[in-house]
Simulated assay, not measured.
Amino acid sequence: MNLPYVILAFVTAQRLSELVIDRRNTARLKAQGAFEVGASHYPVMVALHASWLAALWFTVGDRAVNWLLLGVFAVLQLLRVWVLATLGPRWTTRVIVLPGAPLVTGGPFRFLRHPNYTVVTAEIAVLPLVFGLWGIAVLFTVLNAAMLYVRIRAENRALYT
């Protein structure tokens, strides 16, 4: 058993299952009158995340695992679950606005306006570092920052103005 590939299989399965949750929640929200904001950047975001995972799959090989950083990544997964559980049926990978619905202010949203983006940013940096892949960590952290600059501005305009 090659532990790096087991870890990547877990992360890949997690991301694919989240796309299933996203589709279900998006459909439900749109049926309630919600609308999407920033749809034009969504395919770029999906390509960025898919490329990050692909880069890891193609470069990880039989590298050693940094157990401390794997522990940090595990904590990030708990924070991810906290965000998803807090948003419940309102969690999507898209920016979906349900008119008249109050902003979520519980859970991690008590401390941060965008906790999911904080977790994802940390994941994009930490997982490659688990395998010593500094180049992937730096490259995709920078690309993700550029993507979040666009996405958070669109989301803030939709939710806070």
Rank of each mutant, 00 (worst) to 15 (best):
L8I: 04
L8Y: 08
A9S: 12
A9Q: 08
A9L: 12
V11R: 00
A13F: 10
A13H: 06
Q14W: 13
R15Q: 03
L16P: 06
S17I: 03
E18Y: 08
E18V: 13
L19Q: 14
L19C: 10
D22W: 05
D22L: 02
R23I: 00
R24E: 12
R24V: 10
R24L: 07
N25V: 05
T26S: 11
T26V: 13
T26I: 02
A27D: 10
L29C: 06
K30Y: 04
A31N: 13
A31C: 08
A31F: 13
A31W: 12
Q32C: 14
G33M: 07
G33E: 06
G33I: 06
G33W: 04
F35E: 06
F35D: 03
E36L: 01
E36D: 02
V37G: 08
V37Q: 07
V37C: 12
G38V: 05
G38D: 05
G38M: 06
G38A: 11
A39C: 12
H41W: 07
H41K: 11
H41P: 10
Y42C: 05
P43N: 15
P43A: 12
A47F: 15
H49V: 02
H49L: 13
H49W: 05
S51I: 03
W52R: 12
A54K: 13
A54C: 13
A55P: 13
L56R: 08
W57H: 10
F58W: 15
T59P: 02
V60W: 08
G61R: 14
G61L: 15
G61T: 12
V65D: 11
V65Q: 07
W67E: 13
W67Y: 09
L69C: 15
L69E: 13
L69A: 14
L70V: 11
V72C: 15
F73R: 01
A74S: 14
A74L: 11
A74D: 08
V75M: 05
L76T: 11
L76I: 08
Q77F: 06
L79V: 12
L79I: 10
L79F: 12
L79M: 14
L79N: 01
R80M: 09
R80E: 13
V81T: 09
V83S: 02
A85H: 14
A85G: 14
T86H: 07
G88Y: 10
R90S: 05
R90K: 10
W91V: 09
W91Y: 13
T93C: 11
L98T: 07
G100Q: 04
G100M: 06
A101I: 07
A101S: 10
P102R: 14
P102L: 11
L103P: 06
L103W: 00
V104I: 14
T105H: 11
G106W: 04
G107W: 01
G107Q: 03
P108Y: 09
P108F: 11
F109N: 02
F109A: 02
F109P: 03
F111A: 06
F111T: 00
F111P: 00
L112D: 06
R113F: 01
H114I: 00
H114D: 00
P115V: 04
N116H: 11
Y117S: 03
T118H: 00
T118K: 00
T118F: 01
T118N: 00
T118P: 00
V120C: 01
A122E: 03
